[in-house]
Design a binder for these strands. Structure first.
Length: 425
RNA sequence: GUGGCCGUAGCUCAGCAGGUAGAGCACCUGGUUGUGGUCCAGGAUGUCGCGGGUUCAAAUCCCGUCGGUCACCCCA
């Protein structure tokens, strides 16, 4: 194969039509429930000071230790392409004083994220997600609300294989006791070097290890639920019962932990089986009551999630769902000759301004070729003009499904076409 | 960072007891000097990923390299 001079960087890929429309439609579908629930849109830069992630996400996480796209600017600043959205959004909220107004502050966002990893199915160096954060309340209702909104989004895309898994990691008060107990248990196991190190740095993440021998060794490990304070327990119970009230089934997984250090209490993941053996999460999130203080802000208990747009598209493809997103036109103009092309150019512009999705054949193709293009465009109607029509000031409007064609005065094309499109095919 | 598999036309792939490249789909033209979808006829397109080796001869065998992909660790 003739190698193109340039290709997409390792771990990245392009969305070309019709998948291009599909990924856009997925993002729209994820945002829709949020916009209807009073969430405001926030947009932050694609990169931040490296220290924001180091402190916010956690020095001991894999994200920070080996997966960040970091570089030094010409001015000597250390910056990093954002590996996740929560820390930047919280930073922006604090910087803009959003937390000084009425609480909670509900925000949503959509954009690109970057992690320097070895790519595989569903895991890329550049990915896109839609996120939502509710800042400034401990009310379990918002934890549940977010989960419900996410499930509504998945359902609106037609997905049936997305399941919610929930857990509670406990508050800053109760988690240390669990951490210590787990650590003690893990130290008693015969573990490989890397895992042993992880036991010392972040023992909870060992629970996430997928290797069967590790999972077997964890069978008798202490469980977080035994360490939850009364307040933590009632918070978690409330979240779960609200989910039940909202008709959202969920699964408890006391082993669920996630790769970011800032989570407290509620933790959840949206899983799907179709996106590769290694990863099953199409979205996830949790509560982060201490993150604001970690990055120098006031106490601001909050909860949020991020849904992976490209992973969700993979899940849809795995379920055999048709690609979402509509492109194409309703009307396709076919000119015969230069004079007709000039006339149709104006007609098409008029149609488009009136809100009719329209395209026309260009490049001086023959009638047959132009009609073929009309057919491929998926348009319902073709507007054909040739010399004879020009002389009579008419256009031929052809129904591309039935093949019926009728002459319409040039001045009436817009009205005629609009009327035809308004009636069902 | 580690391992498996794979690189042939725009796409999906065949060809591999070595003899110098094919199919389907897609695309273009014509059959129909003003009408698409079906049909028929014709056409264009490949440094067979790259480099080296073996051989009279390599898409085919060997080595290396690059790229892709899947998986591990971990994550959306």
């Amino acid at each position: 194969m003739n190698q193109p001079a340039f290709r997409a960087p390792k771990g990245t890929f392009d969305f070309v039509p019709p998948r291009g429309e599909a990924i856009l439609a997925v993002r729209d579908a994820m945002a829709e429930p949020l916009r209807h629930a009073g969430y405001g849109y926030i947009e932050t830069p694609s990169f931040e000071e490296t220290a924001l992630f180091a402190r916010g996400v956690g020095e001991s996480t894999d994200i920070v230790t080996k997966e960040m796209y970091s570089f030094t600017t010409r001015g000597g600043d250390e910056v990093t392409l954002r590996p996740e959205g929560t820390a930047p959004v919280l930073r922006a909220a604090l910087e803009n004083g959003l937390h000084r107004g009425a609480l909670p502050v509900k925000l949503w966002y959509s954009g690109s994220y970057y992690r320097y990893e070895r790519p595989q199915k569903g895991r890329y160096r550049h990915f896109s997600q839609v996120g939502a954060e509710v800042l400034g309340t401990e009310d379990p209702a918002v934890d549940a609300e977010l989960i419900v909104l996410a499930m509504d989004a998945y359902r609106s895309l037609g997905l049936t294989g997305v399941h919610v898994v929930v857990n509670s990691l406990g508050s800053e008060e109760s988690r240390p006791a669990y951490r210590a107990a787990l650590q003690e248990y893990l130290r008693g196991l015969d573990l490989d070097e890397d895992t042993a190190r992880r036991v010392e740095i972040n023992p909870l993440r060992v629970l996430d290890d997928k290797r069967p021998e590790i999972q077997a060794a964890l069978a008798d490990a202490p469980v977080i639920s035994d360490f939850l304070s009364a307040a933590d327990r009632s918070h978690h119970d409330m979240v779960r019962s609200l989910l039940t009230d909202a008709g959202v089934p969920y699964r408890d997984d006391p082993r669920l932990v996630r790769g970011l250090d800032y989570y407290t209490r509620t933790l959840f993941e949206f899983v799907h089986e179709g996106i590769g053996a290694a990863q099953s999460a199409v979205g996830g999130g949790g509560r982060y009551d201490g993150l604001s203080e970690l990055i120098g802000g006031p106490r601001l208990p909050s909860v949020g999630w991020a849904l992976g747009a490209d992973r969700t598209l993979l899940a849809m493809e795995a379920e055999g769902l048709p690609l979402p997103g509509r492109s194409g036109v309703d009307v396709f103009a076919v000119p015969l000759g230069e004079e007709a092309a000039r006339t149709l150019f104006g007609v098409v512009a008029e149609l488009r301004r009136a809100g009719v999705r329209a395209d026309m054949s260009v490049g001086g193709r023959g009638l047959k070729g132009a009609m073929k293009a009309a057919d491929r465009s998926g348009a319902r109607l073709a507007v054909v003009i040739g010399e004879r029509d020009l002389a009579e000031n008419v256009a031929q409007v052809k129904d591309l499904e039935s093949g019926e064609q009728q002459g319409v005065a040039l001045a009436d094309v817009l009205g005629h076409v609009t009327k035809r499109l308004a009636s069902p095919a």
